Simulated scan of single mutants.
Amino acid sequence: MTLKSMTGFARTDGTHEQIRWFWEVRSVNGRSLDVRLRLPSGLERLEPRVRARCQEQLVRGNCTISLALKRDAGQMEIRLNQAALGEAMAVAEQAQKQTLLEPAKLDTLLGMRGVVEVAEPDESEEQREAFAAALLAGLADALDQLVAARVAEGQRLEEVIEAQLSAIDILVSQATAIMAQQPDLIAARLREQIAKLDEAGASLDPERLHQEGLLLAAKADIQEELDRLTAHVAAARELIASGQPTGRKLEFLAQEFNREANTTCSKAAGIEISRIGLELKSVIDQLREQVQNIE
């Protein structure tokens, strides 16, 4: 099983009797699962079931779910609200007297809110439940498409992340090879400094120089950091191969990668190790950006 992204989009539509429905589901990155619903008035009762369906298939991400309905005009009954029309006429008459303008026309009065009402036909509980079942089936299809989109994006992310892990492996191997030369480089540098001090007539204690040399070598030893980086690469690959939602664990692991790279740069005793440390930081920054997209 591959990684899943938290980014995706899906849209489905269908018809139940004379009602056409449209589901739109989209998700983006999020620390946890946050579902936001936009349901038509009168369908609020579906919210618990919609949320439950999402929780069954999604683990993380900010998910927005929208439902739109389009009813057949023949299903609707247009009613005139006599009380609202009377109030509208009274207001229009009063305004006409005060402004001496033309009286309000009928189409203007009918266009005022509440004067004309569109009523939907009464439905039995069985009819409402059948409609709800059709809508939920459409939602299930939309969620399946969303998951498929997230899987497809996850496959692309997995390829990118594997390339970054391989780059870290290569840089660690390069640093390990250079590390074998570190004692000689430190000794050469120390000899240069001693020669300059000798020219200046400074008095040097051989035992103290030996201790300083050992201290410099210990400070420049990055083998422990390199070993940890290798272990982190192996751990990241195990997480990816597990087939489980691993986004949070990979984010934490990326922080550990960064910590070892920072220490490597701070300990670097030569230009080559500094260069490798900086390249490690660059690759790890890219890795951190990618794993933030993973479920």
Rank of each mutant, 00 (worst) to 15 (best):
D13I: 00
T15H: 06
T15G: 04
T15L: 10
I19A: 12
R20M: 04
W23G: 03
V25M: 09
V28L: 11
V28S: 03
N29H: 11
N29P: 02
R31A: 07
R31E: 05
S32Y: 12
V35Q: 02
V35K: 05
L37N: 05
L37P: 00
L37M: 10
L39M: 11
P40G: 06
P40M: 13
S41Q: 15
S41H: 15
G42R: 11
L46G: 02
E47N: 03
P48C: 09
P48N: 08
C54S: 10
C54Y: 07
Q55K: 14
Q55N: 13
V59R: 14
N62C: 08
N62M: 06
L69S: 04
A73F: 08
Q75F: 04
Q75E: 14
M76R: 14
E77F: 02
I78G: 00
A84T: 01
E87Y: 04
A90Y: 01
A90N: 07
A92C: 08
E93H: 10
E93V: 05
Q94H: 09
Q94M: 05
Q94L: 03
A95I: 10
Q98N: 05
Q98A: 14
T99K: 05
P103F: 08
K105I: 06
D107G: 02
M112L: 15
V116H: 09
E117Y: 10
E120P: 06
D122M: 13
D122S: 15
D122W: 14
A130F: 09
A130Q: 13
F131K: 15
A133F: 01
A133W: 03
L135P: 01
